[in-house]
Design a binder for these strands. Sequence first.
DNA 1: CATGAATGAGCCTTCATTCAT
DNA 2: CATGAATGAAGGCTCATTCAT
Lengths: 199, 199, 199, 199
Amino acid sequence: MNRQEALLAAAASVFARQGYHAATVAAIARRAGVATGTFYLYFPSKEQCFAQLIALLYDEVLQDVQQRRRGAASVLVKLDRSVQAVLQCFRRRRDLASIVLLQASGATRAVQERLDVIEAELLGLLATDLSEAAQDGLIPPGDAALRARLVLGAMREALVYGLRRDSAAEQEDDEVRRFLLWAVGGQAVAVEEYGPEPS
Amino acid sequence: MNRQEALLAAAASVFARQGYHAATVAAIARRAGVATGTFYLYFPSKEQCFAQLIALLYDEVLQDVQQRRRGAASVLVKLDRSVQAVLQCFRRRRDLASIVLLQASGATRAVQERLDVIEAELLGLLATDLSEAAQDGLIPPGDAALRARLVLGAMREALVYGLRRDSAAEQEDDEVRRFLLWAVGGQAVAVEEYGPEPS
Amino acid sequence: MNRQEALLAAAASVFARQGYHAATVAAIARRAGVATGTFYLYFPSKEQCFAQLIALLYDEVLQDVQQRRRGAASVLVKLDRSVQAVLQCFRRRRDLASIVLLQASGATRAVQERLDVIEAELLGLLATDLSEAAQDGLIPPGDAALRARLVLGAMREALVYGLRRDSAAEQEDDEVRRFLLWAVGGQAVAVEEYGPEPS
Amino acid sequence: MNRQEALLAAAASVFARQGYHAATVAAIARRAGVATGTFYLYFPSKEQCFAQLIALLYDEVLQDVQQRRRGAASVLVKLDRSVQAVLQCFRRRRDLASIVLLQASGATRAVQERLDVIEAELLGLLATDLSEAAQDGLIPPGDAALRARLVLGAMREALVYGLRRDSAAEQEDDEVRRFLLWAVGGQAVAVEEYGPEPS
DNA sequence: CATGAATGAGCCTTCATTCAT
DNA sequence: CATGAATGAAGGCTCATTCAT
């Protein structure tokens, strides 16, 4: 693990535990085992470092989601798999998840705006699926953008719930998926069996 | 409006606009038209003031929810009315809603813990309803606590969505209610018509 | 002496002795007998404080110069009196003089630009006098702006010379005045006797 | 151009543009096309590098002055030629001139003191000339040391004026020379015609 | 009760200098 | 000789909190 990675890991850990404002650059550097100034060789500022962590997680999430959606039989399956991918990806990266889900909103306005842009991408995917599904008659028609938000909100809460209890109950995910499929009106669709995570 | 109220209103406004950390006690006092020191005659600290605002909103929410639930024909109606009450109450108090939904998580750990306790109460109500509904065969059985979380998460996101767009679209609430009822498996239940808000 | 004045005096002393960069806000505050934060109740920044000191001296200088020029028999007398006023005023305020003459150029670009604007005013007066004197045939024609610069430069050096030797030799001023009058070509003009400084 | 020279040139450029404090060793090294550490193979410190640049210019100046003075018919001609030499030499080396004239005073005390020592040499020459000229009855008697200062100050300002306007008006120098000769009382002396600069 | 000037701890950031490679 | 990553001390500035009036 090189310096950059060590610092990112340290930052993730400190930000996750203390929150954006309580975390100090000194603490991050200390945890990474380097001097304070070294932090600034790798990041232009505390804020940028934080933003980078957020981007890191979402890059992974979006990539996983895209990959998982390929070859899905129907739109609803696509949607379901997207949800699965998001849940699994966040669970895999507890620190980053904590940052994105719990700490980000308290950071700077700039961070918030960057996060919004990133989230919009995910929301876009979900909304598209919901639109298509409605057109295909798989679910009742409705405001796709709003529904996508609701889906995201429920997922977020499920993840926070998991983070809080420090448990990564995989069976919970099934319940969440069912909840969301039903929520959008796709009650009749059988939820796919969980397969192994794609590597 | 006495001093205490003026300060709370000022604090709500400033916290909502700037966030917990960017907000300064001086700014709150200024907006309330009092001296900085006066703030500390009414609140022991900035943090306590913030916590008080959160409690303020939730007191209202819980009271509204309780009142709205009385005389509901079935458990699912109770649940639906709870959702309605929460949505309406948050929409009525934009500043406080913004604080609770967007700013609180970035504040202090102490604030976070107080918020958790309060939220637990609301979650308890929802979980109880869901348990009962399952026992009554109105909805399929499942993890009531988790489902309550998911319901709360979806509501939260709906509210945030509204806050961001600066619009209080009432018709959105119908979609949200339908979404949630379906989500928990109560698809067959017709959503009650919106009546006038009980005063 | 109130806080503002005490801080200005302390700042003048510290800046004069240490220079802009070596001087720390903490040192200024300490010398004024206040806490560091107090400094920022009176100045928006270290840089602004420095700029204010410069303006302080030049306000005095320009006022003195204007007053001294009134009622002068000829343009050359006006010029001579301007020189006298500048020299006396700078000698009266050793700290400020040291800051303006020795430390200012090493400060920020912003400070430098403000100083340029102020100096331009003084240069304007001198140049006007020289132009008039040339038109009146009192001195040979020439580039008035350049000559004004040269006059200012010689004065500056005379003052620096005095600052360095820690002496305020008043008789020096006579030599400087003669030097400058001759320099511009006004050799024939008798230098006025020094009167008491106007209060 | 070897490393040492490349670094000196880079340093001259960076110091001239940014000033002593704003200039960073990293920027100098970058401009010289070497690594930061390499800087310290050629200079013991940033401060010494700066001091060296000052010495560099003054060595040239003093040499030029000495050469130009040889074979002068009278003391005043010597003086006049010294002035010419200084003006030309500074104009030839804009970067170094900017450093010596504008940036040096804001540097360290140590730098300032070294500069004083060097300037003293030039002042000595000027003062000697003025003393002799007075003894020879060419100019009225007076404080030679002070006059030398005034001459230097006027020259400095003339040079700064040129630096600021980014112009090297050669005709200005004639005006400056006349100004200075008159200033010391040598009005009757005709100013020598400009010859080509001695190489 | 109210004021608001004063406090001072603490944090982000810079950069001259070093040294292992 | 050359490199450039690493160091860590130092300083400007903020702001929650206090307290004399």
